[in-house]
Amino acid sequence: MIDLLAWPEFKSPVRLWVLVILPVLVLAYLVLMRLRGRVSLRFTNTGVLGAVMGSQRRWTRHLAVAMSLCSLVALGLAWAQPLGTEKVPRQRATVVMVVDTSLSMQAKDVEPDRLTAAKQGAKTFIEGLPDSYNVALVALNGQPSIKMPPSTDRGALERALMGLELEDGTAIGDSLTLALKAVEQAPVGKDEEPAPALIVMLSDGANTVGEGPDAAARTAKQAKIPVFTIAYGTQNGYVDIDGTRENVAPDVATMKEVAKTTGGRSVTADTADSLVDAYKEIGSSVGYEEIRKPITAQYAFGALGFAIVAALGAVMMAARWPR
């Protein structure tokens, strides 16, 4: 539903000059009201005045005028061809899944363990994407790699996803850079134009090697590719490496900054169920795009509604109701 009180963008904003007439009409109404008051003072016999002028309620008169002005405002806005935003399903898209496979993903704070739950969550997310989407898979670790180039082959993608194994290191920046390269491998459509691209990154730790995430995020922003991030795991998660227990809390701040820089969305997940919910939340954005469309009819309908109320007010003023 369009909010008629909101100020939209207009296809023909130059036509808004017509609204300049409204202050003139308001001023004219106030002048006429003042003159009417002076004329009323000439009649000393108020009974005769009431018989001649009829019984008119002041609020009815003001309501009719106010609604008439509102109708003119709505018509003026409609004439300028307002534009609204509507979310529609994407017909084509390239989605690059970046899944953390660093050693911290063996933590069991998410049952049965982080990596197993991440695979299942990503699998469910991919199954919910339209078949026409090209989906790629990048493994996020110390030496990230493209496990599956953009493809509509869901079977091959699932096998690549389930085959992910733990590796040492967490190179968030390098993984994001590699995801951008994966986007370039996506096939073009019949119009020879590349499909809109998005990156979905799941990570449970902080960047430990390679390029910083900030630089890679700026590159993604320049390419107009939003990155949706999931900060995965609990703050108390830990792993035992070489006999030493290490805390592996997710770097929520970095994930949020990457998403903010690129125009994506950042969510958190600390259980298997919340991970599924996080993917669903991201899917609501990935699967749709916002398009601009004319909403002139809504404003014209609003103008009609105001005009009807104004007409009713005029009828109430003109009619003489039995006493």
Rank of each mutant, 00 (worst) to 15 (best):
A171I: 00
G169W: 10
R114N: 06
P149E: 04
Q143L: 07
G142P: 15
E158A: 14
E167I: 02
L178C: 05
G128Q: 15
A156Y: 03
E165N: 08
E127V: 00
L176Y: 01
L157H: 03
A107S: 15
A160L: 00
R154N: 06
Q143S: 11
E111Y: 08
L157I: 03
V110D: 06
P130V: 03
K123V: 00
A122F: 11
L115A: 10
A117Y: 10
R154E: 07
L164I: 06
P144E: 12
E167H: 04
L137T: 07
A122K: 02
I126K: 13
A160C: 02
A156E: 09
P112K: 11
T116M: 10
P130F: 04
P130Y: 05
A156T: 15
P150C: 09
L178W: 04
G155N: 12
L129W: 05
S151H: 12
G173L: 01
A122N: 02
A139S: 15
I146W: 01
D131V: 14
V135K: 10
A160W: 00
S145F: 15
V135G: 12
P150H: 08
D109E: 12
L137N: 04
L161N: 00
T170I: 02
P150A: 07
T177P: 00
S104M: 11
D168Y: 13
S104L: 10
S151I: 13
A122S: 15
L140D: 09
S104K: 09
R114D: 07
G155F: 10
A160K: 00
S175M: 03
P112A: 11
G173C: 02
T116L: 11
L137R: 09
V135R: 13
